[in-house]
Amino acid sequence: MTDNQPTQPESDAHADQLVLTGERTVPGIDAENYWFRRHEVAYEYILDRCAGLDVLEAGSGEGYGASMLATRAKSVTCVDYDEQAVAHTRHRYPELIVHQGNLIDLPLADGSVDVVVNFQVIEHLWDQSAFVAECHRVLRPGGVLLMSTPNRITFSPGRDTPLNPFHTRELNAAEMTELLTVVPTCTGFQVQQMLGVFHGATLKALDEKWGGSIIDAQIERALAGTPWPDELTADVAAVTTADFDISPSDVADIDASLDLFAVAVRR
């Protein structure tokens, strides 16, 4: 799943690529590359934390993130609701265990994993508290929930309803903390760390180049259905994970972050 806005048609997609719907991001598309790298950086950040552990990715989408984690983890199990995504992941990433299922009724036993990864998914769910309770159930004592989501303050500024039509409820840092710690059906989680994803120096320069925001430059053209200038396509295609910074809330202004990233320990 993803939090990107509509992009150009996937004319440069690989033949075996999952269809780009606007609800999830996929690798290998120049016009999608900014959003893909913005998602991918979170997986890079947790590779060491997942080493040697049993990991569940709840809401695995295309499967590229779970495949990255599988290079370090003891095991990686995926659960996604979308049947097409599940079939694609099984075909493209045979090293993964993939289940089709509802995220508020995870097909895993109690206390069966050490880590639950949930990146750019919670904002799509109608019953967010029930999902958090399910994460608590399948984690072993002391297990970790790693969750990212677009920061409501910067993603849908000044709005009560999300800009992205695929989102049900977006969160700010305080709301995300409350969601994780106040769970009616279980003892909840202790939020060990709240981090934010920010533009690094290269992306800040591109923001200036494209009228204040390279994000807006992409979205405006996509919504208008106008062709991208070759230079914009080239700038977006050149973005890497190194162009993003992940900083904790005691170092950076978490309310100014693009995405929120919580590290929560099962109580």
Rank of each mutant, 00 (worst) to 15 (best):
Q8V: 11
D12H: 05
A13H: 07
T21W: 04
V26N: 04
R37L: 11
R37I: 11
R38L: 14
H39R: 12
E40H: 14
Y43V: 07
Y45G: 02
L47F: 07
L53S: 00
G59P: 03
E62M: 04
G63N: 07
Y64R: 12
A66W: 08
M68V: 08
K74S: 07
T77W: 01
V79T: 04
V79W: 08
Y81M: 11
A85Y: 12
L96C: 02
H99N: 07
H99A: 09
Q100H: 06
L103P: 01
I104D: 15
P107E: 02
L108M: 05
S112G: 05
D114K: 00
V117D: 00
V117L: 02
N118S: 14
V121A: 00
I122M: 13
W126R: 15
W126G: 15
Q128Y: 04
S129C: 09
F131Q: 04
V132G: 03
V132I: 14
A133Y: 09
C135T: 12
G143E: 00
T149G: 09
T149A: 10
F155I: 09
S156W: 05
S156L: 06
D160R: 15
T161S: 12
T161A: 13
N164A: 11
H167L: 09
A173G: 09
E175T: 14
E178H: 14
P184D: 00
C186D: 09
Q193V: 13
M194L: 14
L195P: 13
G196S: 04
V197G: 04
F198V: 07
H199I: 10
G200K: 00
L203I: 01
D207M: 08
K209A: 10
I215Q: 15
A217I: 09
E220H: 14
L223A: 08
A224K: 13
A234Y: 07
A234I: 07
A237T: 13
F244D: 05
S249V: 07
D250T: 10
A252S: 10
L258P: 05
D259L: 14
L260V: 10
F261D: 02
A262R: 02
V263H: 12
R266L: 02
